[in-house]
């Protein structure tokens, strides 16, 4: 169509000849490793987002937190001899 024009072909060819710069892969890999670390750190955050989606999950999370966090009261009850293990 336009390929009868050699200057146009040259233009296309030089655009086809563009090469990726050196070190691009290194940069990508460095960032990727970093994201991996960050992704592991934000695992809790993503878990939180999951829980957020359902009312039941939110209640479960609160109850689980209550069970863990109220353990000093359990110990208190044991010390007060109200609970016998």
């Amino acid at each position: 169509m336009m390929s009868n024009d050699p200057m146009y072909d040259d233009w296309i060819n030089q655009r086809r000849a563009i090469d990726s710069p050196d070190g691009l892969a290194d940069c990508v890999m460095a960032t990727v490793q970093e994201t991996e670390v960050r992704r592991k750190q934000s695992l809790l955050l993503r878990l939180a987002q999951r829980i957020e989606e359902s009312r039941l999950a939110r209640w479960t999370a609160c109850m689980a937190a209550f069970l863990v966090g109220s353990s000093p009261f359990l110990y208190l009850a044991y010390v007060a001899q109200l609970l016998v293990f």
Partner: peptide, 23 residues
Amino acid sequence: MSDGNTSRRVPWVAMSLSFLSAG
């Protein structure tokens, strides 16, 4: 915890944290 300097405070997270330990 977030991208910027502001973030949403999630009620059930606040409650869970408070249950884990008051305050």
